[in-house]
């Protein structure tokens, strides 16, 4: 019997995220973003993080405002349904709380960087970004002729992040997991990263996971820790479990216009609750209102061999 990888969120973040780490969070773009882990990073006051994601809605803005971030490696940072990210703006325009470094990407180049990392090669070529100023603001991109002809390509250097923190619908104690919905860059990020922390809505048996191997996101040996963390994605949505809490994003946009307002927000929602369970209690009936009650199921498929 293998040793269980199941542990609390507190312990997983304490044990497997170090100051200065590069961390993928929100690789699925707007859905299943591991906000619970972001809040725990703030509670544990992790420092000098390099956050990697294409678009992770307000997660980056929160961590930038909380002062944890040295650098973002991203395609987009803001508030998807409400507008700009006020903390991101304060950081880059006024140095509040400090100026974060930005490694500019598009969604595609970030995807290629993680894909190259997952493939174990140093770069991948692409036609995207030719002629753009991303080539100027991110000097890591190189433009070179192809060795097979005269065509020019952007060469995107690979990324192998220290940790990927990924949300899934269900996992077993060994790190086998089922994921459904849009993938974004989650699979590329999972395969490219040195450590993978899974936040799972439900913990299920190993038999449940192996009953449907096509729905498995990555092999369990790549998984470092499994955390049972219901509603970890709030306020972002999780297919089959929770709707998106639109109001929460819009309230955040309103109250964080001033830095003091952000500090109040952080105190209320992140620092006062001592754990994710406390945060869920603070949300109160909101969680029940967001819970998906309907069922839309796929017909069974047959894996039999006799």
């Amino acid at each position: 019997m293998k040793k269980s990888k199941l542990m609390t969120l507190n312990k997983a973040i304490f044990q497997y995220v170090n100051d200065g780490d590069s961390i993928v969070m929100g690789s699925g773009l707007e859905s299943m973003i591991p906000f619970a882990a972001a809040y725990e990073l703030v509670r544990q006051q992790k420092k000098n993080l390099n956050l990697i994601a294409p678009i992770s809605d307000i997660l980056f803005d929160i961590l930038i405002g909380a002062g944890l971030v040295l650098k973002i490696t991203a395609a987009w940072s803001g508030n998807v349904s409400a507008g700009l990210g006020h903390n991101y703006r304060r950081s880059l325009e006024k140095g509040i709380p400090h100026r974060v470094q930005v490694e500019d990407h598009s969604n595609f180049t970030l995807g290629l960087a993680l894909l190259a990392g997952s493939m174990g090669i140093p770069f991948l070529p692409t036609k995207t970004l030719l002629g753009t100023d991303l080539l100027r603001s991110n000097p890591r991109f190189k433009v070179e002729k192809s060795p097979f002809g005269d065509e020019r390509f952007v060469y995107v250097p690979s990324l192998n992040p220290d940790v990927a923190i990924l949300g899934v619908q269900r996992a077993d104690e060994d790190g086998g997991c089922h994921f459904w919905g849009n993938l974004g860059l989650s699979q590329d990020a999972a395969l490219a990263s040195k450590k993978v922390i899974l936040l799972a809505e439900e913990i299920v048996s190993k038999e449940t996971i192996s009953s449907d191997p096509n729905r498995v996101l990555l092999p369990s040996f790549k998984v470092t820790a499994v955390v049972h963390c219901p509603a970890f994605s709030h306020p972002s949505p999780m297919q089959g479990y929770y709707k998106r809490d639109h109001d929460f994003f819009h309230e955040y946009h309103q109250v964080t216009k001033q830095e003091a307002g952000f500090q109040d927000w952080l105190h209320k929602w992140v620092l006062t609750p001592s754990s994710h369970e406390d945060y869920i209690r603070l949300l109160g009936e909101r969680v029940e209102q967001l819970r998906v009650k309907q069922r839309i199921t796929a017909p069974e498929i047959n894996y039999a061999f006799q």
Partner: peptide, 14 residues
């Protein structure tokens, strides 16, 4: 003003 960035927009435009 720091705007949000490309997202997928640069890829679509290219």
């Amino acid at each position: 003003v720091k705007l949000p960035g490309s997202g997928g927009a640069a890829d679509i435009a290219c």
